[in-house]
Amino acid sequence: MRLRRNVHEVDAIAVPAGGLARRWRLGEKFIEGWIYLAGGLAIVVLLGIIVLLVKEGVPIFFDTPPWEFFFGTKWYPVSEPPTFGIMPFFVATLWVTIVATAISVPIGVACAAYLSEVAPDKVRETVKPVIELLAGFPSVVMGFIGLMLLSPLVQSAFNLNTGLSGLTAGIMLAFMSLPIIISVSEDALRAVPDEFRQASFALGATKWETIWHVCIPAALSGITAAVMLGVGRAIGETMTVLMVAGGALAVPVSPTEPMMPMTAAIASGIGNAVRGGLQYQALFAIGLILFVLTLSVNLVADRVLERQKRKFQR
């Protein structure tokens, strides 16, 4: 604001056009326009996706009322008449997410605490990038690992008919959401001012007490955000759950049953769906629900992170 006013003042005095006259910088304008365009495009595409989801998905509710759609336990898209109840998928997603969270949160936070509070700088500087690299692991590879390595283990450990279950999928998802949980939690812990640790030590608290009673509570909002981001990843992950969750259509009562989470239902069904048909619409509606779910998780995480940032600025 001030800068601009100064420019006007300079104009007003009418400086000789020597060095100070305003210049028309074409390159600058071009880059500015390019950035606007790119940003605008991203927003347009995002809005387009939402519009598409709504347009293709919502019409199912004219055929199947929302009540039946959400709480129906039968998904028979090709029988006559077809029924579209997504309860089995929804519960499956719930189970897989719960398993993934129950495993990844304690491990992830403990690992973050180790990296931030205990590990020597050298260890942290090597381990953290490696962990973050794991986030880029192709999910189909994770699915393959789950299929070949984990599912036989789960099968024998729980004495199941098949090792392909929500539990197996949940464990794989836990590994896949660990990198983001560790990385974001570690950032949150490192943002805790050192004064708090000093005060805690000076009061005679041990290292463990300091981590547990001072650092983690102080970083709690950041850690919460990390968990949310991890959960968001678990909800949205498709390929791995498609490969290892088992794909059963019944409402799963236990995580050790084979099941089909929402993402897997879309991925496996969309190939057979007639474009614009009822099944097609139903799958889009599932997509819309997933979108709303992950969006709200991410929004909450974002808000929480924002609060964390402000927390220590007194």
Binding site: P193, E195, F196, Q198, A199, S200, F201, A202, L203, G204, A205, T206, E209, H213, V214, P217, A218, K311, F312
Partner: peptide, 29 residues
């Protein structure tokens, strides 16, 4: 040792907790 020899720092550094919890922190530990 640190129970017997307490320390007050240059910059006030209360924990981001309630007043009560701040004072109770040491005894609790």
């Amino acid at each position: 040792l640190r129970k017997k020899v307490g320390m007050v720092f240059q910059k006030p550094n209360p924990f981001p907790m309630s007043v009560f919890e701040n004072v109770a922190f040491g005894p609790r530990r």
